[in-house]
Measured scan of single mutants.
Amino acid sequence: MATGGRRGAAAAPLLVAVAALLLGAAGHLYPGEVCPGMDIRNNLTRLHELENCSVIEGHLQILLMFKTRPEDFRDLSFPKLIMITDYLLLFRVYGLESLKDLFPNLTVIRGSRLFFNYALVIFEMVHLKELGLYNLMNITRGSVRIEKNNELCYLATIDWSRILDSVEDNYIVLNKDDNEECGDICPGTAKGKTNCPATVINGQFVERCWTHSHCQKVCPTICKSHGCTAEGLCCHSECLGNCSQPDDPTKCVACRNFYLDGRCVETCPPPYYHFQDWRCVNFSFCQDLHHKCKNSRRQGCHQYVIHNNKCIPECPSGYTMNSSNLLCTPCLGPCPKVCHLLEGEKTIDSVTSAQELRGCTVINGSLIINIRGGNNLAAELEANLGLIEEISGYLKIRRSYALVSLSFFRKLRLIRGETLEIGNYSFYALDNQNLRQLWDWSKHNLTITQGKLFFHYNPKLCLSEIHKMEEVSGTKGRQERNDIALKTNGDQASCENELLKFSYIRTSFDKI
């Protein structure tokens, strides 16, 4: 039985969820670079991206490699990797027998973001014989899940209580170790020597080791999670996991709180800001991140802002960003909400898709409305799209047979046209069989910064309504002859009103 693990408890099935942008060198404390989270699957090609990484700022997932063999891993080693800020997950990587050479110096898994409450997941690794993470000293947050690894031993010899604050939620089941077939031998045991430290858990006094050649490092209890030197002297209180010299914040392997210019500090002093819960960055760093993602459509890219001495992905609820200094300031009234469309555009074809934009005031991208039916549609669209004030790209209304009016965009005031449909149009209306009105132009103002209007096959939309939009939106004169079809717009509506004058002759039985 794995020490510190839980057996036999019912657990939810383990679901495996399925960018080499360097964020800056980590400095003297770390020998390499800070790398983003990685999802490495199918083959070993991307694994080489770990070569210079000291910190993975995010998670590391290595999974679904069915053609790899043990010899493929023999020359692979990433000794610079010290810390993973989120979680480490391995799933069905064939041929991998140990992690001792792959990650010989991995010391800390912070667990800032977890995989279903777990910071370390080893699942269905069919050839893994031992973990071998002999320098792993601290899992700051989260638990361990090690399950269905039929060859995995050296679990009962690990004292997880020396690595985690609590072992109650560890789930370590259905491994070879369960069948008591392992016969784990710690260093020196074969020669009758006791080389590794022994600890007591559940009444068992057991030597602690990761492999037959690597003991588990056990520091004096007084050192807590700070770690200790090879001689057993406690590291500085700002260290986490390990250090090369005692009581020196510049000799830590990793930091308990924050890293700044080669030393570990309790908090980031001005003019620095907390970033990702582990390091200090200056304003320029946060500003660069903001600008890199301002026009990016890459998933996970955030326009970072500053709030409460932190550089964070977005302002919290009730705050909006001051564009001059990136500071989050309290909103006066309802907060603006910028919604970034991942692929640059979004099609609204149902109430469900409209709900995804609920509360958005600025759309960074283009909207395509293609709704053919739905219950209580006008009210639903207004509830979900009615706060949109600005669209950076274009607005396209296409084959939306259920629409009679666009009044559900009740606050839309600006279409920038930074991206144009077919390279020309910022407003595009095609084949809307029941569209009769755009907006009530006596109450609604709309500016279209650039781009043209396109109207074709809107049989109940009168040309007068379209011409009014040209005047109000500032697009009059931009359109070419064929942009607004004269014969297919309003051709099934009563669009022309003329005053009919009647004269009559009164007659009676005795007068003409």
Rank of each mutant, 00 (worst) to 15 (best):
V93I: 04
V34Y: 09
I163A: 01
H307S: 11
T194P: 14
P313K: 08
I222T: 06
S323N: 05
D177T: 03
E49A: 06
S77I: 13
Y154L: 03
N308G: 04
S244L: 13
M65P: 02
I84E: 00
T140A: 11
D247F: 07
E168W: 13
E57Q: 14
T250M: 07
L89F: 03
C264F: 00
Q276N: 05
E151M: 03
I56T: 01
E130Y: 14
N105M: 05
P104Q: 02
Q287P: 02
I163S: 00
L29S: 09
W278Y: 13
T194K: 09
C280H: 01
N138H: 14
E97G: 13
T140L: 08
P271V: 05
K129G: 06
L164Y: 12
I82C: 04
F78R: 05
C335M: 02
S296L: 09
C301L: 10
R113V: 13
L96N: 00
P316K: 12
D75I: 14
Q216I: 01
M125R: 00
I306G: 14
E238V: 11
K251A: 01
D169N: 07
C235R: 00
L120N: 01
C153S: 02
N179D: 05
N242V: 08
L233Y: 15
N308D: 11
P269W: 11
D288R: 13
D184W: 06
G227P: 08
T329A: 14
G232D: 05
H59L: 02
P220Y: 03
V144S: 06
G95F: 04
P336D: 14
E130Q: 13
I56L: 13
Y118Q: 06
T329Y: 07
L29F: 14
S237Y: 12
E207P: 03
V173M: 04
I82E: 10
L81Q: 00
C328M: 01
N257V: 02
K251N: 12
H59Q: 14
I172G: 01
D159E: 07
S323F: 05
I40Q: 02
P270T: 08
Y134D: 06
H214N: 09
G32D: 10
P246A: 09
G37Q: 13
Y272R: 03
L50Q: 02
L99F: 05
M321R: 09
F78L: 10
P104E: 02
T250D: 07
Q303V: 10
P70S: 06
H28V: 08
M137S: 11
C186W: 02
N295R: 11
C286N: 00
K217N: 13
C53P: 00
N295Q: 08
K224T: 11
L260V: 07
K80Q: 12
L50V: 07
P197I: 15
C255H: 00
D39N: 04
W210G: 01
V265Y: 05
M321S: 11
N170C: 10
E51I: 14
I222A: 11
C239I: 01
T211H: 04
N322R: 09
Q276G: 11
V305H: 06
D261L: 09
I56V: 03
I62F: 14
D178T: 07
L136P: 01
N257F: 07
L44G: 06
E168S: 15
N257D: 07
L114Q: 10
I163D: 00
N308R: 10
G142Q: 00
R141L: 04
V305A: 07
G232R: 01
W160M: 11
I163Q: 01
S296D: 15
D288K: 07
D39G: 02
Y304D: 04
L326F: 04
C328L: 00
K80G: 14
G241I: 01
F73R: 01
P271D: 03
D277H: 14
P316R: 11
M38Q: 15
G111S: 02
Y171W: 04
C286M: 01
G318H: 13
P197R: 11
